[in-house]
Structure formats: C-alpha cells, structure tokens
C-alpha cells in the first residue's frame, strides 16, 4: 500500500499545479469566454523572474513579489495590446491571439534571460516528510496550500463581491454590463492582471520542485486546459477538482502502466470530456432561452 500512497501524494502535488493553472484560466474565461493559452507562460515568467531577481541578490520573498507584479503587468499589456484592439472578433480569433502571444513571450524570455533550466531554494528545506511509509516534500505542501488558498479567494471573489459579479455579467452580456455602469474595459484589464498573478504565483511555488525554463509554459497550459475542461471551464471548484484528478490520474498511469504514457492521460481526458460531457463535472449550464 505505501506504493499507492506514494503515487497519490505525488499525483496531488502535480495536480495542485494543474489546479493553479486551471484557476488562472477561470477569470479570463468568465470575463470574456476566451481560453487564454498564454496562461502557462505566466507560470513560466513567475519562476524565471523570481530566479533572476533572487540571483541578483534580492531576498526570495521580495523576488517572488516582484515576479508576481511584473507578470500581472505583462498580463495587462497582453490585454491592452492584443485582446482589446481585437474586440468584437470571434472568440476563436481571440484564442488564437493568446496562442500567438504565448509564442512571443517564450521567444522574448529566451532573449531577455536564457535557455537554461533554473531552480531556487525550497521555502522550508528539502527534507522529505514521512507519511505512512510514503514521503512528500515540504515544498509540495506549499503548492497544495497555494492551490487551496487561490481557490478559496476566487470562490469568494465570484460569489461574494460585486466586482466578481461584474466580471460574470461582462461575459454574459457586455452591452447590458455597460448599461448598468460597468466599465467593461476595466473588468478585462483586472481579469488579465489577476489571472497572470495567479499563474506567476504557481510558478513561484512549483519551481523548487520542477525547475523552470523558458519553454515549460506550453505543457502547463495544455495540462491546465485539460484540468479545466474536466472540472468545467469557468468554475473555480471545477478547476481545483479537475486539476487534482488529472494529477492523480497521471501519477497512477506513470506508476502502474508506464511513465511513457503519463502525458497521454491528459489528452485522453480532453477527448473523453469533449465526447461524453462537454460541460465538465461542474460546468455552468446555459440557461438562455432561445
């Protein structure tokens, strides 16, 4: 049994990362129905900027804070420079713009930083913690706690705050949102800033375990997308559960079948969800009357 527990623990750790990426998707999707495929690059930027700021001599918490703020600013720039000018374009075009942006960010990162893999120290050391015969890294607990904290904050944001409802209202009917006094451009800017900040936070938490490099974003975006689809796009609870499920599924596939098939799990999940239940586990049902 310790074997199963070990797979479960590593699955939950990886799953928490996917959950963080999926949670990042949630806000922009809720504000605009756009799936932002540059979300993985935000994770990468969080790790890379923290590493270089730390290497330049800043204390780790300050380096992390700078990384989150800079990444949020890059998210805002993405909205202002690429998404807002294309307003009125079909959602598919906007999604393609985000894919282009992710390629651009990857290239720019290579130029500004480098092509190496990087790591900075774990927050609470590297001494594994023993749980019932299996082990878990202290940094994994940070990742899991981070995913839970972001989930709770987002859930409160969308259900308890007026600005959170304004985000939902903007996605649901942009014209009507303007007619009640919502500045929909501001809502979009806020959504990109928040999504990017969540992505960067994920990068800060996970880099001590997985390392970071200019090209880690794409795989994360795809896994996060699979997780969000599984849970139901746009729903924070779906992002959390979908991420954890996908992580555990991958760990089990790697452990009991072969680690070669690990990545295939995500794509089997995407296909199965699209085929069997396009709304995902907790997806919002459309209540429009036609």
């Amino acid at each position: 049994m310790p074997e199963l527990l070990q797979f479960l623990l590593s699955g939950i750790t990886v799953g928490a990362v996917y959950a963080l990426v999926a949670l990042g998707f949630t806000i922009i999707y809720n504000a605009s129905d756009v799936v932002n495929f540059a979300q993985g690059e935000f994770v990468m930027l969080g790790g890379m900027i923290t590493f270089f700021a730390h290497a330049a001599g800043l204390p780790l918490p300050l380096a992390a804070l700078i990384a989150i703020i800079v990444t949020a600013a890059i998210g805002v720039a993405l909205n202002k420079l690429a998404i807002e000018p294309a307003r009125g374009a079909p959602v598919v075009s906007l999604i393609i713009i985000t894919i282009g942006a992710s390629i651009f960010i990857r290239g720019a990162t290579q130029l500004v930083f480098d092509k190496q893999l990087h790591r900075f120290p774990a927050f609470s050391g590297d001494q594994p913690i023993l749980i019932g015969g299996a082990t878990i890294l202290p940094q994994s607990l940070w990742v899991i706690a981070g995913a839970l904290a972001v989930f709770i904050c987002l859930w409160l944001f969308f259900t308890r705050t007026l600005i959170g409802r304004a985000v939902l209202a903007t996605a649901n009917n942009r014209v009507a949102a303007q007619l009640v006094g919502i500045n929909t451009n501001y809502v979009m800017t806020l959504s990109f800033a928040m999504s990017a900040a969540i992505g960067a936070l994920a990068g800060v938490l996970v880099t001590p375990i997985t390392l970071t490099g200019y090209d880690v974003g794409l795989a994360l975006a795809l896994k996060g997308f699979a997780a969000a689809m599984l849970g139901g796009m746009g729903n924070p609870k779906g992002a959390l559960v979908g991420g954890l499920l996908l992580g555990v599924l991958e760990a089990m596939t790697a452990g009991y079948v072969s680690s070669q098939y690990k990545d295939a799990a995500a794509f089997v999940v995407i296909l199965a969800v699209l085929f069997a239940m396009p709304q995902g586990l907790f997806g919002r049902k459309s209540t429009d009357r036609v």
Binding site: R165, L168, A169, N172, V175, A176, A177, G181, I182, N183
Partner: peptide
C-alpha cells in the same frame, strides 16, 4: 456608456438584454 449611467441616464434596453446566467436578485444588484 458606463459613465453616462453615473451621470443619471439609465436605459432599459429593447428585447432581453438581461444577465441570463445570473439570478434575478443578482441582476437587480448589478
């Protein structure tokens, strides 16, 4: 448009321009 509401000019639009995914109460709150 959003700034005109602040100045006291509000529109009840033609058709069904309401927030269909939100509850009646949330629509009113917004």
């Amino acid at each position: 448009a959003h700034a005109r509401v602040r100045r006291g000019l509000a529109q009840s639009p033609e058709g069904r321009q309401i927030f269909t995914n939100l509850t009646v109460e949330e629509n009113l709150r917004l």
